[in-house]
């Protein structure tokens, strides 16, 4: 069961996925962030498809198609619509400056590579080398959520986190059972819709989408 071509293709896609998260960390504009999210969805579905083809697991093919429909078509349309309705534009406000965030990101990558290396030896999948990349994607997405101040960009971080989870699951164990995947995907869709409603609520009560004010629990 050797698939040298598929393995190197999956490795390449994993590297690109990591790159998109780093791009998300360094980017300063909301529109570009959503474009990067679309790219991430494309890479994720391509990598799921490749793993599916290499391993012969039928349900991964469905999952790839589903990922494509949800993350390359449905969610971006929803997000762009939200941005237009909220009249968001311009720069993303970052809490830390970008170079420091990037250096932290590199340390996260090293950490997750180190943590994943014993796991890699136990896993039996075609794409087991990429567990570290999946873990790094998850941690970096956390970093995106941590370093952004606007609600919209935090949600982008959460969505990218979900991408990372899906990627890890696919590469470590050929994915979760189909029913779980479907449930998660629907949750993400519904969650984004709910977030949209919340955005309007937050803006109405604070006149801003800045979450800094939510951190204060009492009037001072």
């Amino acid at each position: 069961m050797h698939h040298p071509f598929e393995q190197s293709l999956i490795g390449l896609l994993g590297g690109l996925l990591l790159l998109t998260v780093f791009a998300m960390l360094s980017i300063r504009r909301i529109f570009s962030m959503i474009r990067i999210f679309v790219l991430q969805g494309l890479i994720l579905s391509a990598s799921t498809l490749t793993v599916g083809l290499a391993s012969g697991e039928r349900h991964l093919l469905f999952e790839a198609a589903f990922t494509f429909v949800l993350k390359v078509v449905a969610l971006p349309v929803l997000l762009f619509h939200l941005i237009r309705r909220l009249r968001l534009r311009g720069d993303v406000e970052v809490v830390l400056n970008v170079p420091i965030t990037m250096v932290t990101g590199i340390f996260l990558v090293i950490f997750s590579y180190a943590v994943a290396s014993p796991l890699v030896r136990m896993a039996m999948t075609v794409s087991r080398g990429l567990i570290g990349v999946g873990l790094a994607t998850i941690l970096l997405s956390f970093l995106v959520v941590l370093t952004r101040r606007k609600a919209m960009t935090q949600v982008m971080g959460l969505l990218s986190l979900e991408n990372g989870l899906l990627f890890s699951a696919t590469n470590a164990t050929y994915g979760m059972p189909m029913i779980v995947e479907l449930g998660v995907a629907l949750d993400v869709l519904v969650g984004t819709l709910l977030f949209g409603v919340f955005f309007f609520q937050i803006r109405d009560s604070f006149e801003k989408l800045d979450l800094e004010r939510l951190e204060r629990t009492w009037e001072d």
Partner: peptide, 14 residues
Amino acid sequence: LLAILGFLSHFVLE
């Protein structure tokens, strides 16, 4: 950072 990532990825992914 991209250069470091490339350097690391060689040991992990390849």
